[in-house]
């Protein structure tokens, strides 16, 4: 069997047999404790500066950021952005409870569909689970309320991100993932798909000249909810969303 052949060849090269149990346990211990390596100083700064750094890095990578005071400001921000970009007032929205809890009635002309993305969708409204200040990177763990296609198919992606969900370095986001999430299939915490997104899609394949919007979105617009006063915990909505992902439980509305 090839598995045995490959492992055997590796061990021959390493001039040893299978690892003794104590050494294997030590390596498993290293995985379990997943020690951090060097974390660059750039993100180890006070909170307010971390948020500013996040915004700066998003903009450096051709994303845009709009600060809004609370969720109630989302409908206006979305419609204004669409109008400013000369885009039709129509979005496809993640079935995320936080987005669904918003009162959209003040903007009756904005057409919304809550689902995964399909061909022909021009604009998506997605929910970001975290932001990393170090490079202006958004974290999108896939689950029933956060379909990955919303990050990919439309030409324009609007993202809701709470300021309290911004961390300094990637390692902090990993720890949060480990602490807060549970995967229904593996019993671990890693979702099926985890996209780390830094700016809109691009390519430099043609004469090494940067063009935005290669296959994914050409515009990435972040609505940053300034909720910093409250300490970050997994919102109740998110906890509920996760509960729906457990096998055997009824799907959340909008699935």
């Amino acid at each position: 069997m090839s598995k045995d052949a490959i492992l055997g060849a590796i061990r021959r090269g390493l001039k040893r047999g299978p690892l003794p149990a104590d050494q294997a346990a030590m390596l498993n211990g290293r995985i379990a404790s997943h020690p951090r390596h060097l974390i660059p100083a750039r993100s180890r700064i006070p909170r307010a500066e971390q948020i500013a750094l996040f915004i700066k890095n998003v903009e450096k990578e051709f994303g845009t950021v709009q600060r809004i005071p609370d969720l109630a400001g989302v409908p206006e921000a979305v419609t204004d952005y669409l109008a400013a970009q000369n885009l039709p007032a129509r979005i496809v929205m993640a079935p995320h409870p936080e987005l669904e809890s918003i009162d959209w009635t003040a903007r009756p002309l904005l057409a919304r569909e809550t689902r995964r993305a399909q061909e022909g969708d021009l604009v998506s409204l997605q929910h970001a689970w975290a932001g990393v200040a170090e490079t202006g990177t958004l974290f999108f763990p896939s689950d029933p309320v956060r379909p990955a296609t919303l990050n990919l198919l439309p030409e324009t992606e609007i993202v809701l991100l709470r300021a309290s969900a911004i961390v300094g370095a990637y390692e902090e986001a990993w720890d949060r993932l480990r602490a807060e999430r549970k995967d229904p299939m593996t019993g671990g915490w890693m979702p099926r798909n985890l996209m780390l997104v830094t700016g809109p899609s691009r390519s430099a394949d043609i004469e090494q000249t940067l063009e935005l919007g290669a296959h994914g979105p050409r515009r990435l617009h972040i609505l940053l909810v300034e909720d910093e006063a409250a300490p970050r915990e997994m919102s109740r909505a998110e906890a509920r969303a996760q509960a729906t992902a457990q096998p055997g439980t009824p799907a959340a509305p909008g699935d």
Binding site: S142, L194, L196, T244, A245
Partner: peptide, 17 residues
């Protein structure tokens, strides 16, 4: 721009993957 971690198959309730 995209650093993506793929882990297994579509989970129950997932809308894509």
């Amino acid at each position: 721009v995209y650093t993506t971690f793929s882990t297994g198959i579509r989970r129950q309730g997932d809308l894509d993957g």
